[in-house]
Design a protein around this nucleic acid. Structure first.
Lengths: 227, 227
DNA sequence: ACCTGAACACCGTTCAAGT
DNA sequence: ACCTGAACACCGTTCAAGT
C-alpha cells in the first residue's frame, strides 16, 4: 500500500513496456533520439535498469521491428492473390509511414520475430497457392518489397509536400537548388521543371505509390499467364 | 625544405582530401565507424582541424553523397530511353553496392551537389525527349528509383549469399529462424521453403535485380505506347 | 590562415553494489 | 529479482588559444 502511493508513476518494468516505450520515442523523435539513456528517463528509471529486460540495443530494435510487422496486413487463406498483394503493399506502406525509422531494419535483422515470420510465410503462401512457381514467387516478392521499401524510404525524406500542405519545404529546397545551380540554371531545365511543377501542384504520395504498384502487379500477373 | 621532411606524411588538408578520406572510411567500416574523431585520426590530425574544411558532419555527408552520384552513369543526349534507363539503373546499383552507407542519404539531403543535379536532370531529359509527358516521366522515375533504392537496401542486409559463396550466413539465420519457430515449424512451410531453397542454391542478386527491373521497364514502355 | 587543447553535453555498456 | 551509481571508452561541436 505504502509502496503503491510512494511511487505511483513507476509501474513495474517489463520487456513489453520497454519495447513499446522505445517505439513511441522513435516515432516521436526519430531513431536518433532513441538512446538507452533517453528511454530510461522516459520510463523514470536509471539506464541500467533496461538491461534486465532487453539484452542490448539490438535486441530492443528486434522487438520494435516485430511490432511494425504485426501492424502490416498479410494475405489471408484463399484470398485472390492480386487484391491481397495490393492490400498488403498499401498496409505495409502505412505501417512504415507511422514508423519510418524501421524502413532500413525490416529485412536485415538476424533474429526475426513471430510477426515477421507469419507475414513472410503468409505472403509466400498466397503467391504459391495462386499458382506461381517458387522462383517466380521469389521474383515477384522481391519486386514488390523492393518497391515498397524504396518508395517509403524516399517518401520519408523527399521535400515535396502533399497537395494539401503549403509549399514551404519545397521552396527551401528550391532556393538551395537555385543557389547551387547559380548562373548555370539554364543547364538543368528538366530539373527546374520538377522543382517548379511539384512545388506548384504538390506531390500526392499515396496516388504515386499506387501508380507504380499497379504497374508492377500487372507485370506480375503477366508472368502467371505465361506459366 | 625542413618543413617538408619534418612532417612528410601530413599533406595540407583540403575539403576534397577530407571528403575522400571520409568516403574511404565509410566504405571500409560502415557509416557507424565514420566519426569526426576517427576521420581526424586517419588524416593524422586533431578532430577540430576538420571544421576548417567542412561546416559540420552533415556538410561532410553532402560531399560524400555527391561523389556517389558522380560514379553513377546517366543517360547521354539522344540515347534510346529504354537501354539508357536500364544502364543507369544497373550502374546506380553498382555504385550503391560500393557505398552502401549512402542508400538512405541519396534523395533526402537539402543541399544537392552538382553531380546530383546533373544526374537528375539528364534522367528527366531522357524520358521527356523520348516522348513521355511530365507526369508520366515522374511516375516512371519514381518507379525505377524506388525499386533501385529498395533493392539495394535489402541487398545490403539480406543474409542470402550469392551462389558462388558458402552458405554460412544463411545457416546462421536458418538456425535462428528454426529456433524462433521452435515446435511450430510446421506453421511456416513456405518460409522454410525459402530458407532451404535459397540456402542450397544461393541468391543471384544481379540477375534478381534485372528481372524486376525489366518487368518495370516493360510496364513503362506500355505507358508510352498508350500515350 | 590553419591547426590545437581543453571542455561540454552526450553515447552504449560493464561491473560491483544495494534493496 | 530487480534496480542503482560510478566508471570506461566513446560521440559532435564550441570556444579560446597557439603558430
Amino acid at each position: 500500500m505504502a509502496q503503491q502511493t510512494e511511487a505511483p508513476r513507476r509501474a513495474r518494468l517489463s520487456r513489453d513496456r520497454v519495447v513499446l516505450a522505445a517505439l513511441a520515442l522513435a516515432d516521436k523523435g526519430g531513431i536518433e533520439s532513441l538512446s538507452m539513456r533517453n528511454l530510461a528517463k522516459e520510463l523514470g528509471v536509471v539506464p541500467m535498469a533496461l538491461y534486465k529486460h532487453v539484452a542490448n540495443k539490438g535486441d530492443l530494435l528486434d522487438g520494435m521491428v516485430d511490432i511494425v510487422f504485426s501492424e502490416a496486413e498479410f494475405p489471408s487463406d484463399g484470398a485472390d492473390w492480386k487484391t491481397a498483394m495490393r492490400q498488403r503493399a498499401i498496409s505495409m506502406r502505412e505501417a512504415l509511414l507511422r514508423h519510418s525509422w524501421a524502413i532500413g531494419l525490416m529485412e536485415g535483422r538476424m533474429s526475426p520475430g513471430p510477426a515477421n515470420l507469419r507475414h513472410h510465410n503468409a505472403t509466400m503462401a498466397c503467391m504459391r497457392e495462386a499458382g506461381f512457381s517458387f522462383r517466380t514467387a521469389v521474383h515477384a516478392y522481391n519486386a514488390m518489397d523492393s518497391y515498397i521499401y524504396g518508395f517509403t524510404l524516399q517518401e520519408k525524406t523527399l521535400p515535396f509536400e502533399t497537395p494539401e500542405e503549403s509549399g514551404e519545404v519545397v521552396q527551401t529546397k528550391a532556393a538551395n537548388v537555385a543557389q547551387t545551380m547559380g548562373a548555370w540554371a539554364d543547364e538543368y531545365p528538366y530539373l527546374a521543371e520538377i522543382v517548379v511543377e511539384l512545388g506548384k501542384a504538390g506531390f500526392d504520395y499515396a496516388a504515386e505509390f499506387e501508380f507504380a504498384l499497379d504497374l508492377i502487379l500487372d507485370g506480375i500477373e503477366r508472368l502467371l499467364q505465361q506459366a
